[in-house]
Amino acid sequence: MNEKLKALKAAFPYTIPVFLGYLFIGIAFGVLFENKGYNFLWAILASTLIYAGSMQYVAINLFTGDIGLINIAFITLMVNIRHVFYGLSMIDKFKNMGKFKPYMIFSLTDETYSLLCLTDSPEGINKNYFLFFIALLNQSYWVLGSFIGSVAGSLITINSKGIDFAMTALFVVIFVEQWLFVTSHIPAITGIIISLLCLVIFGSDNFLLPSMLLILIVLTIIRNKIEERISVEKEETE
């Protein structure tokens, strides 16, 4: 079996949760976009070029003609600013990815980011192909979902209420997985407490940016403490 196919086969099982989540969220996007008069070609175009779940939902309401391009750019910046922080933790991981690097950066969604955080390529698998296929498979689910939603969304009659919980469940799984692996639980706890605090203070529409900044500040302040702890535990295990 050649290297690429092997990496693709190894990557696929990891992407199944995202498959479930993206398919349904993608379908919902397709339905909504279709309702605004944009057919499946538009859905595919948006999901291929933009590829940002929450932003595409926001975008649906921007095709009205009375919102200027500068405004649209600013809204996009605000909704997606959290991605800046994702890149920060992928600089090392993407470092030697060569020709794949631009696509890896382009496709760094919440879900792909979390999978990449969690996943190391299995033994004997080409790491670059493995990471690339995770990213590519995820986007293909997203495009497929929007396509299906656009074409057949209105025909789906099963009660799918609550199916979007798949995404929440994915994050919980990754959270648990990291919890069991890391030496210090302070970052995870910091993330949850600060976000809950910001949610209460700033409200559900505006809490992401202040949360990220506060997380960054707090983790910077307690850096010495955490690094001390990590190095102590490393010595203990060695």
């Binding site: 933790s89 090392d92 959270f175 949360s211 997380i215 850096r223």
Partner: peptide, 28 residues
């Protein structure tokens, strides 16, 4: 060479951000 501070962030940000994303999922 990636700065040490960034390497540190790369290690501690993911658990914190995933925690934040869980909160984001249940924000409404």
């Amino acid at each position: 060479e990636t700065p040490k501070y960034i390497v540190y962030l790369g290690r501690v940000l993911p658990p914190a951000v995933i925690g934040m994303l869980i909160v984001y999922c249940v924000k409404n």
